[in-house]
Structure formats: C-alpha cells, structure tokens
Design a protein around this nucleic acid. Structure first.
Length: 449
DNA sequence: GCCGTTTTCGGCCCGACTGTTTTCAGTCG
C-alpha cells in the first residue's frame, strides 16, 4: 500500500506535466512541481491533516490543499481527469525521452497526432516528421537515440558502482597538467542510494586540456555534448558523466551549485533573489551592480545567504533550508564519530599492512577499541598457522601496553574450523574475539578492512 | 498557484548547449 504522500506527489507531478504539455502557464506548472516535491518529503502523513494543516506545507495553498483533499477521498481530482482527457498518457510518456520536452511533445501530438513513444519511433522511421517545424535530421536522430536509451532498463546505478568509476575519473583528471582541484559532485556527493549520472567538477585555468583528457578516457562510448566549460559523455557501461571546468577562484560557488539537488539550488537562489543578490555557479553577486560578493568556499556562499553550511547529504529541499534558518540542522554522524573497528586483517593473511602499522593507524584515528581478526588456519588460500596466530597474540599484548586503546584479539573462523576454535577458547561459524587483557569478549562483524 | 526584507499584487533560479526557427526556443541539470 503506497504512502498517501507518495500518491499525492505522483498525481500533482502528473498534473504539472500535463499542464506543461498542454501549454499551461509556466509559473503554475512550477507551483505544482514544487508542491509535489514538498508533499513527497513532508514528515507527517497527509491523510492525518485537515485543509488548514495541509496549507502549513510549503508551496501548498488553498487551491492545492483542496486538490489534495479530493485525492485523499477519491484517489484523483477532477482537474487532473480533465487534462487526462486532453492529453493521452503516451504523450506524457514521450517527455521521458531525453532531449524531448513538453513543447516538442505537444507539437508532435497536435500536428501529427502522435500519441505514444512507439508511434513516434514509427513516424521517424516512416519519414512523417520531415518538414515539421523545429524537427531537423539531427533532432530525429537524437530522439531515436533517446528512445533507445529510455528503453534500456535500470538507468540508475547503486552508489557503489558509480563511486568506483567517479574515483577513477577524478584520479585521471587530477593528473592532468593545470588541474588544481577535482571532485565529484551531484547526487554522488549527496550520497544518494542510486545515481543517475556522475557530475565531476574541475578547477583549472586550462579548460581545453582537461576536456581533451576527459573525452579520451578509456571507457568512453560517445560524447553527448562538448563545449568550452561543459562536456558530457556516456561510458561503455551506459553511465552519463558530466564534466564542468571553472576557474579556481569560484570553486565554492560551483561546488555548491553542482552538488544540488536541483530543488535545493532553486531554494538557495530564491533566497538570494529576495536579498537583492544573484546566485550562480560563478558566485554570489549583487543583483543590481553585478559585483561579485563571494565565490571561493561553500561556507561563504551559505553564510552570505544567512544560512550555516549545509552538509551535502541533506541538500534535497526536504526541510533542510527551514532547519538551517532555525539554526536547527541535525548533528550528522561523521568519521570522527567512529569509536573503533571490530574486524580487521593484517598482512599475516590477506590484509595489506603489518600489525604495528594497523594499530598505529587506529590510534591516529583516536579509536577507543580495535580488534585484529585475521583468518584462522586451514583456510585454503591463506597462510595462517596456530604458531603465527599465537605469536601475533603475544605481539598484540606488547602493543596494548603502550597505549590506552583497548586491543582485542580474535579470528575469522572457518565454517567447520574446529582447530581454529581452540585459539579463542570457543568456536563459531563467524568469528571470535577476545579482549586484551583477555577478560572481556565481544562478537565481530563480517566487514573486512 | 504561491508567496512576502518586493507583503494582497507583481514576480516567480540560472546558465550551458543544441539545433534550427539565423537570433533564439527548447531542453537539461
């Protein structure tokens, strides 16, 4: 059973789309888009609110509140049904084709009665679009490519997949001469669960060199767009990667802009406008004189807007602006909050660093506790023996005496690893860890570091 | 249709790129 908020969000967004396609007022379209986002991210269940309560939601006024009430009672609202009569669902589906927006979709429907993605593909193949104003050969080609792209399922990927590629690209571009800074931005920096495309930002006075390196990446499939400051490519695995190159002096404003989300950016720009300012990726300016006010750091940009620096993971326009204005942003967990690690391997088995270096690093991280849990003996691909493990235990005891951090010694036991059980004094199919001094015990995770 | 350091009417984010309608509209992020 979908959440009431999600149902209302979807119907208001559909209403906005249909209004845009049918040539409705652009500002009203935007109002319904904003209202859709607001209800989707609203903390309370809409079905528990009366009309007055609904109007407390940002971007929901009297008219939208009445539509929401009608949805909650009937599952739809009459103005939406009227628009559905005028614009077939297939036409709305057409604006999902990359590069085809509401204006072009309306022309296709009005002039050629094309009412679905399938009919559009057939019309292009049959040459029906020839001579239609605004639709040249290149546009036809792009629409066909867009249809193909849309039909490839799963165009969003999990963050882990995108992060790996983004880190590779960042490393490649950082090596380009003249690249002063390079970071991924967008939904990746916001740590969204799934990523539609990868945004990379580079600070450099030599844009052409960076662009050239970008379009010569080994996993390039094709260049979608290429300009002086912006280039978009598609990789061989189908992911789109957008690169923007800016001058180092405007790094903060550009990073704020490219981290987004779009809705968050619109809110920050609206705040700027109300203060007589103009915000873009090039900085925060005085709207009247055009003088640059700040651009170097994100914190400066937010501060000048009257806001504290907002962590990227919150920048979704889901209440963070209001919380920031109240001075009530949540205190997020970060790396410094991690107190310890309960599952690590040294180079005695398949880790990369020796015991002493691992423990030094744990101390540098100010951990309160730290466990060494190498593989048990008798694992085919490892080289552990009872003797090595006992020696490691002695070594750990010496190192434990040198600091306050609680050191734990354990092992990642093998399933059916009967012999390994004798080391920790108990057996387990997962792992066993004992504290040093060996008076306390705790369980281990399966994470490998 | 919504909103207010512009407050009950007038304004509503900003810039890059593409293709085409040769100066700009449409689309995207």
């Amino acid at each position: 059973m979908p959440r009431a908020n999600d149902v209302v969000e979807a119907l208001l967004q559909e209403y906005a789309d249909l209004m845009a396609i049918s040539g409705g007022d652009a500002f009203r379209v935007r109002t319904y888009e904003k209202a859709a986002r607001s209800v989707g991210g609203y903390h309370a269940d809409l079905s528990t609110l009366d009309e007055k309560g609904l109007q407390q939601i940002a971007n929901v006024g009297g008219s939208t509140a009445k539509k929401i009430q009608e949805i909650l009672q009937t599952g739809t609202f009459h103005q939406l049904e009227e628009l559905r009569e005028q614009v077939p669902a297939g036409v709305r589906e057409m604006i999902g084709i990359p590069g085809l927006g509401p204006k072009k979709a309306m022309v296709l429907y009005r002039d050629l009665h094309i009412g679905s993605v399938q009919e559009l593909a057939e019309a292009i193949d049959g040459g029906t679009l020839k001579g239609l104003k605004g639709f040249g050969d290149k546009t036809e080609e792009n629409i066909l490519r867009g249809i193909s792209l849309m039909q490839q399922s799963g165009d969003r990927v999990l963050i882990g997949v995108a992060m790996e590629l983004a880190e590779e690209i960042v490393a490649e571009l950082q090596a380009v001469r003249g690249c002063e800074k390079c970071e991924y931005a967008g939904s990746l920096r916001r740590m969204a669960e799934t990523i539609g495309d990868i945004d990379i930002l580079v600070a450099s006075m030599d844009g052409p060199s960076v662009m050239e390196a970008f379009v010569n990446l080994p996993y390039l499939d094709r260049v979608i767009a290429r300009g002086e400051t912006k280039t978009s490519i598609r990789t061989t695995k189908g992911l789109q990667v957008d690169l923007r190159v800016i001058e180092p002096g405007v790094w903060g404003a550009a990073l704020q802009y490219f981290t987004g989300s779009k809705a968050h950016n619109i809110r920050t720009r609206e705040i700027a406008v109300r203060k007589g300012l103009k915000l873009s990726e090039y900085g925060l300016f005085d709207a009247e004189s055009g003088d640059l006010i700040v651009a170097e750091t994100e914190a400066e940009v937010y501060e000048r807007l009257g806001l504290p620096w907002i962590p990227p993971t919150l920048r979704e326009d889901r209440g963070e602006i209001e919380a920031a204005l109240r001075g009530d942003l949540p205190d997020l967990l970060d790396l410094a909050d991690i107190r310890g690690d309960l599952h690590t391997h040294t180079n005695l088995t398949d880790g990369l660093a020796p015991l002493g270096q691992m423990i030094d690093t744990a101390r540098d991280l100010k951990y309160a506790y730290y466990a060494v849990t190498d593989h048990a003996p008798n694992l085919y691909m490892q080289r552990m023996t009872d003797e090595k493990m006992l020696a490691q235990r002695k070594e750990l005891a010496k190192l434990a005496a040198k600091g306050k951090m609680v050191l734990l010694h354990g092992t990642e036991l093998n399933i059916d690893g009967v012999r390994a059980g004798s080391i920790g004094g108990r057996s387990s199919s997962r792992g066993s860890t004992s504290a040093w001094p060996p008076s306390t015990r705790c369980s281990t995770s399966r994470r490998r570091t």
